[in-house]
Amino acid sequence: MTDTFVALSDPTRRLLLDRLSEEGGLTLSDLSEDLPMTRQAVAKHLAVLEAAELVASERDGRCKRHYLNPVPLAKMARRWLGRFEDVPMGAIAGFRSQRAVTSPAHRI
């Protein structure tokens, strides 16, 4: 799972995942369009995404097509974000109001 967090930490890699989410089966040339970097730099980012299993690739003749693999993202969401889905909003509101009352700036 650490690879997933590392892969998602870079804005360029998140952009590549967004593009693959919108339209799968893109080649390196497709993904490199409109990016302010070389194709080789994009290829390095894709390699990180593939190592984290966020991108799956397949050969199509001479082309290599890339697809988003949502499984690691779903696992991460269940493990790390799922535990916060059932947090009562009242508890959060209570935390904020309690913090405002005890804040030194509000004691005057």
Rank of each mutant, 00 (worst) to 15 (best):
T4F: 04
F5P: 00
F5T: 08
V6M: 10
A7C: 10
A7H: 05
L8Y: 02
S9A: 14
S9D: 15
D10K: 06
T12F: 01
T12A: 03
R14V: 09
L16G: 00
L16Y: 01
L17Q: 00
R19L: 09
L20I: 08
L20D: 00
S21V: 01
E22V: 14
E22W: 09
E23G: 09
G24K: 14
G25H: 10
L26V: 03
L26Y: 00
T27H: 11
T27M: 11
T27N: 04
T27A: 08
D30A: 12
D30F: 04
E33Q: 08
L35V: 05
L35F: 06
P36H: 07
T38Y: 13
R39K: 13
A41N: 14
V42P: 00
H45W: 07
A47H: 05
V48T: 06
E53M: 06
L54T: 01
L54R: 01
V55F: 02
A56C: 09
A56N: 05
S57F: 08
S57Q: 15
E58M: 09
D60C: 07
D60W: 10
C63N: 11
K64I: 14
K64N: 03
L68I: 06
N69I: 12
P70H: 02
V71M: 05
P72Y: 06
L73N: 04
A74K: 15
M76A: 09
M76T: 13
R78A: 14
R79E: 09
L81M: 08
G82I: 12
R83D: 10
D86P: 00
G90K: 08
I92G: 01
G94Q: 05
G94M: 10
R96V: 07
R96N: 02
Q98T: 13
A100T: 11
T102L: 09
A105I: 11
I108D: 07
